[in-house]
Design a protein around this nucleic acid. Structure first.
Lengths: 233, 233
DNA sequence: CTTAGAAATGACCATGTGGTCAATCTATGA
DNA sequence: TCATAGATTGACCACATGGTCATTTCTAAG
């Protein structure tokens, strides 16, 4: 008993998943991964229950702890999966719209964001939970990574926009990106959590309403930031 | 035993605090309220422990549950307190800057936000936890309330700005407010959670750096939105 | 000093937690 | 057919949780 304490060597904490898990048949791996996602999406890190996960996934607790050494490790794995999927999606949108004019592009990206959230609400929930909840382990690190990624993405778009002469030259690219990223971020968040207040005519928004709202929003941004401002007065 | 189940009438869930608590000597009330705030700020709703709270506050568990019928009720009380303090602070800033030009005003509000966060980090943490964590009870309701309040605040500023001719007339007030609110919100959040990435030269920002950053940001906004745009090209 | 009513207490409870590990099952190769 | 190595299992653990309530302590009026 006492001896065991000495013998127990620190388990290597590095790998997020054990090789036992990674060698699982893909079918099973995907099935139980979905279970992980479901539970964490529903409850967030802290409230998620390993017991419930085991139940959902239809595996035994022993197996789960063979696959991942701790709840933290499991969560980091789930985070990675969710993050990769989002990045993949963004990459696609970026590619698809690469020939469009900047603001059209930004508009399509906002729309794509809405679509993604509607299509993968579970992932979106995890994403936002991670994003803002100190609750998650490594929360700060994750947060930094996400923010950096997001800024990098928008930043590169803006830079290209300036180069193409679609945005006023001489603009501070970083800050412009910050503004756009803020808007995009907040819009999606608010969309995801269904809290757009009635004054915006978007509460419980349908797809059409969202799109109309986005369009007007982008028009506004275009008039402000665009090269040839059509300021009425 | 069995009978007691019948006798036990549903405790009135309405009041967030029992009158026993509200009749406490102010000194004690404030002292233990601080303890509540500390614990919730540190852990968030779900992870906060009633046992720890009791320990921090230096009261007995029995007393705590005499003051509040449940953890939920206690949290709602804490939320109310935090929310009131923030609102109070915003009201002050708004009053103090009421004669300033719009963008100067917005700048001062951003700065005030930073100051508030630096001065009341605990409240800020609770605020952001509430804001983004599904974790909290009544989370959706709270979220809606906060968003509405925030939009109302910025919205009224913008409207005034337009009336005074400091912002392009004919602008969509709601959407302009949304953009500004997004920026303010994200800036403060990012400030609070110390995740401004290095490319923005603001990671681990000092007050001076923050202010400089805000100033540049507002300059950018002014050039975009302001009445007489000084677009370089 | 007595006493009644309110306030404060903390031992106690059922339930759920993340995590462990000896025992069992399964599939493969001889 | 059996032996072996790896995967799988779930009973079990110590501990923490939100919440209860019979008992004690405090307070102030008589």
């Amino acid at each position: 008993m006492v001896i065991s304490k000495f013998i127990t060597r620190k388990k290597a904490e590095k790998p997020e998943e054990t090789e036992q898990f990674s060698q699982l048949p893909i079918e099973k791996k995907e099935r139980i991964t979905e279970a992980f996602i479901n539970e964490f999406a529903k409850k967030g890190f802290r409230a998620a229950s390993m017991n419930k996960i085991v139940e959902r996934a239809g595996i035994s607790k022993g197996s789960l702890f063979n696959y991942f050494n701790s709840k933290n490790q499991l969560f980091m794995y789930v985070y990675k999966v969710a993050f990769e999927r989002v990045k993949e999606y963004l990459r696609e949108v970026r590619e698809e719209t690469k020939d469009e004019e900047f603001f059209t592009r930004f508009q399509k990206i906002m729309e794509a964001g809405v679509t993604f959230i509607k299509k993968h609400p579970k992932l979106a929930r995890i994403y936002y939970r991670i994003l803002y909840t100190g609750d998650s382990p490594e929360g700060a690190t994750i947060l930094r990574e996400l923010h950096a990624e997001s800024m990098k993405f928008i930043g590169s778009l803006v830079k290209q926009g300036v180069e193409r002469g679609e945005i006023s030259a001489g603009i501070d690219v970083d800050k412009a990106a910050f503004i756009l990223e803020s808007v995009l971020n907040r819009f999606l968040q608010v969309q995801n959590q269904n809290v757009l207040d009635p004054s915006l005519n978007l509460y419980g928004a349908s797809s059409e309403e969202s799109e109309r709202w986005i369009e007007e929003m982008v028009t506004l941004l275009r008039n402000w930031m665009g090269e040839s401002s059509s300021d009425p007065v």
